[in-house]
Each structure stands twice: as structure tokens, then as C-alpha cells.
Amino acid sequence: MWQWFHKWGSAKWFYQASAAWSRVFGYFALLFLTLGLVWGFVFAPADYQMNHNYRIMYLHVPSAMLAQITYLLIAILGLVNLVWKIKITPILARAVLPFGASCVLLALLSGAFWGRPTWGTYWIWDARLTSTLFLFFLYMGLWACYSLLPASMGRNSAYKAAAIVAIVGSVNIPIIKFSVEWWNTLHQPASIRLTQRPAMPASMYLPLFASIIGFYCLMVYLMLKRARLLLLEDELHKAWVKEVEPKLVGGS
């Protein structure tokens, strides 16, 4: 167990091992996304009101889910970095951040474009939309931390500071959601709130599952792909880089 943990501290080991994993997750992402989206957009039956608009769900639901999961993941990685000081975790957190931010954007846009035919407007101050909007700003703040703080406190300190920001943010996310819901019930007429959808037949939710799994795999794939390069960038002067990537570094 301890040895397994120790392995994660080794940048070289991670760099070499992650090549294969990232490929595997890449293929899985391709498989499940194709399956889920083609099934969802082409073969799944129309809604009971003969409505095709709901197909946006196959992108909206996974992206909204992953938007939150990714932030949580970043916070957990930050916690692991602060407690066990495993070198690779802040790099993983940094690497997955753009994917999370993209998911928020996609969730917001797909929410708006789903809402337009449903509610008659692109944007309503619905609790979910509003809290997703603030999640977007949390991502942007974290991104700014990763890109600006190294200049003022050095890279390693900046990673730790960003981890603290992510943890503070993740504690706040449920509070923000709760407060926005409270605010929403005060202000919004109940008629245009997202209510529970009618129960779906299997032919509708199975593609949704496939799509969600596809998004998860995509997250891991993109995270590993970026993390490998960020690790290389951070450790460019180390001996193991020359050993592993002689073509990149050694060639003069």
C-alpha cells in the first residue's frame, strides 16, 4: 500500500504509465460518446409530446454533472496535495481545469438553448442556471490562480495556494446552490421552474448513461493528456526527462 502511494510521487513513473492509460480512456471516451450521442440524437424516440428538443439533454446533463464533479475532483486533488504532498496531484488538478470550465460553458449554453423553446427565453434566473453561472466564475478564479500566482510566490507555493482556493470554493458550492434556491423561491413565479421530468423509458435513458460514461472517460483522457505535458514542462530540467524523452530534450 505504502509503496503504491510512493509510486505516485515519482514523476517518471507517472509519465511512463499514464501514456497507456490515457490511450485506453481515449478509446473508451470515443466509444461511449459515439454510442450515446448517435443513439440519443438519431435513434432515441421523440418525447411524448413529439418533441425533439429534449435531445439537448444528452449533452446538457453530462456536462452539468461533470462541471460539478470536476470542481470537486480539483478540490480533492488539492487536499491530497496539501496533506500528503504528492507531486503529481496539483498538475492533475491544473490539467483537468480547462475540461471542467468547458463543461460549465456547455451546460450553460445548452441550458439556454433548451430553455428558449421550453420557457420562451434564453436566460431565466432559475436556481440551477444561476448557480452554474457562479460555478463558472469559480472556475475562472481558480484558473487565474494557476496562471498568475506562480509569478508572485513561485510554482510550488502557487499550487498549494490554488489548492486552498479550490477547497474553499468546493465548501462554498453547496452553500451557493442552497442560497440561490432560497432566493429563487422568493422571487420566481413557480410556473417556469425546471420541475421533475416525466419518467423516461429505457430507450431514452440508456443513451444518456452511455453519454455520461463517455464524458467521464473524456475527462480522464484529457486530464492525463494535459498532465503529462504539464509535468514535462514543470520538470524539464530533471534528469528523467532526458531519459524518457531523448528526442525532445537531448536533440541539439
Binding site: G141, S152, I176, F178, V180
Partner: peptide
Amino acid sequence: ALTLGLARAGMLMALLVLPLLVPVLVF
């Protein structure tokens, strides 16, 4: 504290703080 030593920290301050203050504002 985070932006200590950064030039032009005001923008980053607002970006970091305002979303976190939404619950305070609401209640």
C-alpha cells in the same frame, strides 16, 4: 492574501470574492 505581491490584483480579487459572496448577499 492570495494576490499579495501581484500587480493589479483588483480584478482577480473581484473574480475570486464575488461568487463566494453570493450566499451572503442573498440572505
